[in-house]
Design a protein around this nucleic acid. Structure first.
Length: 502
RNA sequence: GUCCUGUUAGCUCAGCUGGUAGAGCACCUCACUUUUAAUGAGGUGGCCGAUGGUUCGAAUCCAUCACAGGACACCA
């Protein structure tokens, strides 16, 4: 490590700084303002007669992004989290020898320095700090990427996110938005009286979703555990226990492929609300989106790639209706298993003939409807066969009281009135087990303790999950999940594998 | 998992049908006290992703592998 010639050069400079009596990793910062604050407080300097105010002395700190050395004076662009500021450094305003021997020879782009001085406006009209004192805080020994093009290599941006953040300030904005979305979500539900809880990430049975789990091992107990694929079954146990409104914002882990919309670990919110139904959740979801848009100061119509999504236009459609009204699937085939199979085959879509009617309707939806749902659309009344945890509709027992919310052609939320009949739940687990025997390796496992919990009685409850990563993607117009995750999952590189062996 | 396209200096990229490796920025030396991707002069810097093969000769052609990006398949 650090064999590169440029790094060696910079290590030598750090040593020079040390030898000349200054700590290249000094800890005694006396910063008294941020760069944006400096701009704000001194915005009037250009109106002053002298275009300067030598009495307003302040100290700012930051990383050097540009370095323009012109003999006995230099202009530097200094960046902190709040913004960027030009500073003007001259030989005659610094202690004897400092400019020529320490500053000019050993300070460069990438270093973090602190400067004290007064504000003035240059001939070109830029507010600048006139430096009377300069302190090197951190010597950077690796050179930064090129100042104009920055880094564009996606692999480097994801693997070395710190470099991406240094070079591409827009990236910071995305993560600021992400942080606000999480924080606003928490506040929205707390204000409604929900209790935030933390349930296990390591499960003896991976339940609550159709997905393949990661397996880990507990040495002391000598048993395998699954990283959770969903918190659902634990949150509902809490409703049984008497909490009436709970939510959890945290990671789920699914052992599946990675692409633009899938990362092995992803963040969701799940919330459960006793004495409510899926219809209440439709209302609360609209309210939640309004709340986010208001507090993020976003317009109701947002671009997403080529699309324009109108967040003022939420609609509801029953799944079976959406097949022909939106998907243009002939109405007469939608209730007939064999006709659907023939139809799917005629469109050259692989179809598993063991599928039941509800599963086939789900296939039709995925193929012909989903991508057409641009404005927010609640698809309701899912077939019971593809909703193993949802409550049946009293009026139409083959359907469930469930919806999924689609935006920009993608599922963003899944919600239903929860199944609370313990015997029905037991039967559905048994149905899932036979699906597993038929080769569906993502079917639910039997969770006897969960059924047992329901046997004590769970109040009628509505529950919902929202994919936070995908929500942030929509709000920030990002088209890969890797751009809303600070450290997306990446395959190890060759050198990392070799280090692992050693 | 399949297909397509990439991988050349610290970074951004050239490099044509095989003939000793190029530019800009950065870095080093020099000049320059109001610059804006500062400027001018000179210079250093490469296991051309990895391993094999074809060839007198490979960054270039072929094969395998690794990683990345995109598309498809599966999923949220």
């Amino acid at each position: 490590m650090f064999k590169n010639q440029y790094i060696q050069q910079r290590i030598a400079k750090a040593k020079n700084i040390q030898d000349l009596g200054h700590n290249p990793y000094s800890n005694d910062s006396t910063r008294d303002t941020t760069i944006s604050q400096f701009h704000y407080v001194n915005s009037d300097v250009e109106t002053l007669d002298e275009k300067r105010d030598e009495k307003r002395v302040s100290t700012v700190a930051g990383r050097i992004k540009f370095f323009r050395l012109m003999g006995k004076a230099s202009f530097i662009k200094l960046e902190d989290e709040s913004g960027i500021l030009q500073i003007y450094v001259t030989r005659d305003n610094l202690p004897e020898g400092f400019y020529n021997n320490i500053f000019k020879k050993n300070v460069e782009v990438g270093d973090i320095i602190e400067v004290k001085g007064y504000p003035f406006v240059t001939n070109k009209g830029e507010l600048t700090l006139h430096v009377s004192d300069l302190n090197i805080l951190t010597k950077s020994i690796s050179p930064l990427p090129e100042k104009f093009h920055g880094i564009t290599d996606k692999e480097m941006r994801y693997r070395q996110r710190y470099l991406d953040l240094i070079m591409n300030s827009d990236v910071k904005k995305t993560f600021h938005t992400r942080s606000k979305v999480i924080s606003l979500t928490r506040r929205f539900f707390e204000d409604k009286g929900f209790l935030e809880v933390e349930t296990p990430m390591m499960h003896p049975i991976a339940g609550g979703a159709n997905a393949k789990p990661f397996v880990t091992h507990h040495n002391a107990l000598g048993i395998d555990r699954y990283l959770r694929i969903a918190p659902e079954l634990y949150l509902k146990r809490l409703i049984v226990g008497g909490f009436e409104a709970v939510f959890e914002i945290n990671r789920n882990f699914r052992n599946e492929g990675m692409d633009a919309t899938h990362n092995p670990e992803f963040t969701s919110i799940e919330f459960y609300w006793a004495y409510k139904t899926y219809k209440d959740l439709i209302e609360v979801t609209k309210e939640y989106f309004n709340y986010l848009f208001e507090h993020l100061n976003l317009p109701k119509i947002l671009p997403y790639g080529d699309m324009e999504v109108n967040y003022g236009n939420f609609t509801e459609v029953r799944l079976i209706d959406s097949l022909h009204t939106i998907g243009d699937v002939p109405k007469e085939i939608c209730e007939d298993k064999d006709k659907i199979i023939v139809f799917l085959k005629s469109r050259h879509i692989d179809v598993n003939e063991k599928m039941n009617l509800g599963q086939l309707q789900g296939e039709l939806f995925d193929e012909f409807v989903e991508e057409k749902l641009i404005d927010p659309t609640f698809i309701t009344h899912y077939p019971v066969e593809i909703s193993p945890l949802a409550r049946r509709s009293d009026a139409e027992p083959h359907l469930t009281e469930r919806f999924e919310l689609f935006i920009a052609g993608r599922e963003i939320a899944n919600a239903f009135s929860e199944l609370n009949d313990p015997l029905d739940q037991l039967e559905r687990f048994e149905g899932q087990m036979s699906a597993k025997d038929n080769g569906d390796d993502e079917a639910h496992e039997m969770d006897a303790d969960f059924v047992n919990a329901l046997s004590y009685g769970m109040a009628p409850t509505a529950g919902q999950g929202i994919g936070m990563d995908r929500l942030v993607m929509l709000l920030t117009n990002q088209h890969t999940i890797r751009d809303v995750l600070l450290f997306p999952a990446m395959k190890p590189q060759q050198s990392e594998l070799e280090e692992d062996k050693a």
